[in-house]
């Protein structure tokens, strides 16, 4: 089969290559379309559907009632509380993680790798159990309480309060902040800091004018990675919040499992997804990469 190359052959060869790629992707493509994209679409569709009097869903009389319901005081409070707690969580994570990442980036490579592994372990390991650990610690008769009683501060009563929820969220998502921040600080050109100091800037000025702006992509990436799961958190409010002060995640679950108001549950889910997509797009626009 020896022939002179022609534009036609070249084009056919390119097509063959592209088809090979497509076929490789196809199984995952089909799977995700069927078992991810389709479910996602159905949530959006259901958010515009009508709830029947029996708690079922009628796929007719399309309306935006479920969205107007988001403006009602109960739902608004929940939205507000969720956003507030998610923002507080993000800020605390940032405050803890920034100096940590900076410290990490200034260690020598071997130390740094070990330190990183010990951040990666909580990053990937069982989230439920790690929340449960706090439940044990914060319990009435738990170790924290006994310590505070011992030093005369009285019994610790933060379990089942928003404070406990924030504590659990920070505990759960702090690694999400550390890893992108560390990556940003580590990538930084340290000679710029030298240059700034050389040009007479103080340590604080250098940090404000050079270090922080350079690490900003990491700050944004980390904040988004903490904010999104905090906003949609379900396990932590259940375990540490006692499900009393409801957050978005719990509210959605209630609408689906107990209140049987699927359109409203779907509408809240859709809002959550839109926020998430917006934040993710911001993340990629700022040059973020996946962990």
């Amino acid at each position: 089969m020896t022939a002179v190359a022609t534009p036609k052959f070249e084009a056919a060869n390119e097509r063959k290559k592209s088809r090979r790629g497509f076929l490789l992707a196809l199984p995952a493509y089909v799977y995700l379309s069927l078992f991810f994209a389709l479910p996602l679409l159905s949530v959006v569709v259901y958010s515009f559907a009508k709830r029947t009097s029996t708690g079922g869903v009628a796929l007719e009389d399309w309306n935006i009632d479920s969205y107007t319901k988001l403006g009602e005081p109960i739902v608004r409070d929940i939205l507000l509380r969720s956003f507030t707690l998610a923002i507080i969580t993000t800020v605390i994570c940032l405050v803890l993680a920034y100096p940590f990442s900076y410290f990490l980036a200034t260690r020598k490579a071997s130390t740094r790798n070990i330190m990183l592994v010990f951040v990666m372990i909580p990053f990937w390991s069982n989230f439920l159990v790690r929340n449960y650990a706090w439940r044990v610690l914060l319990g009435n008769d738990g170790p924290v309480s006994r310590v505070t009683e011992g030093v005369g501060l009285g019994e610790t009563t933060i379990l089942f309060t928003p404070t406990a929820i924030v504590l659990g969220l920070v505990y759960g998502f702090l690694p999400f902040m550390i890893l992108p921040l560390y990556a940003a600080v580590e990538r930084m050109d340290w000679s710029l800091i030298e240059a700034s100091r050389d040009l007479g800037a103080t340590g604080m000025q250098t940090f404000r004018k050079v270090t922080f702006p350079l690490s900003l992509p990491g700050v944004i990436a980390g904040s988004i990675l903490v904010f999104i799961p905090s906003l949609g958190a379900y396990v932590t409010p259940q375990i540490l919040g006692g499900g009393k002060k409801t957050m978005l995640g719990s509210y959605i679950v209630t609408q689906f499992l107990t209140a049987r108001n699927w359109p409203v549950g779907a509408a809240v889910s859709t809002v959550l997804m839109v926020v998430m997509l917006g934040a993710t797009m911001l993340y990629f626009r700022k040059g973020g990469r996946t962990l």
């Binding site: 996602l40 999104i228 779907a266 889910s269 998430m276």
Partner: peptide, 15 residues
């Protein structure tokens, strides 16, 4: 990867 657990959960339940 980025979708919150709860959202994915209701998606799958609905589906």
């Amino acid at each position: 990867v980025i979708i919150p657990d709860v959202t994915m959960a209701v998606m799958m339940l609905l589906f």
